[in-house]
Amino acid sequence: MTDVQTGDPLVRLSGVNKWFGSLHVLQDVDLTIDRGEVVVVIGPSGSGKSTLCRTINRLESIEQGEITIDGVKLPEEGKALAALRSDVGMVFQSFNLFAHKTILENVTLGPVKVRGKSKAEAEKRARELLDRVGVGHQADKVPAQLSGGQQQRVAIARALAMDPKVMLFDEPTSALDPEMINEVLEVMVSLARDGMTMVVVTHEMGFARRAANRVVFMDAGRIVEASDPETFFTAPSSDRAKDFLSKILNH
């Protein structure tokens, strides 16, 4: 795939800086994600990838700069922030399914509590989504009864149930046994094909090559380079990216 900048920006980070105490985790980050674009974020552990992802729905606040989604600046708190978050889906490394709720309830909770949908309507849609990610027959179980790969697919369905404008994935396959990685990646590739706007922190190069429009390489809190996947993996321009790629390719 080539770099299809549609010129229709959905998420825009400009001049973003964030500190954890004295640690400068995000340094002058500028990044614009267009509607329908899939951006893969890659970089060494501790480089700030998760933090970047989490600032986009303000699970982490920022000290400087501005983040807008669909032209709206991220609200600082309260109802407005909750409303904005409902439009941004998030998939966590550790799934974070609600442990005391069934699979079906996990997926209907947001639509019912936040969108005010009726239970019947929410359940109908939840079952469609669970079928789509291949766990429809598990609807009445609780999360602990499912494998990691199944739980992560439920987590994707839970996020999709809100009809988000953009989806954030923070290392969605890093906690999975190797044989379960593909079943999750397949779901993500199909989402990308359907035109979902996605920010994906991952080291899965296969996914980046198949689905990403752009790869963003981070190191020490900065975006060091951004290019289409083919260029990035075959001819990275920065030494740091070269160094990083040689490490992950050799392991």
Binding site: L59, A99, L109
Partner: peptide, 17 residues
């Protein structure tokens, strides 16, 4: 675990919810 509350907030639930 903090992930439970984060997942809830990420869905758009407010603090009380």
């Amino acid at each position: 675990s903090t992930g439970q509350a984060e997942a809830a907030r990420a869905l758009g639930l407010d603090f009380r919810q």
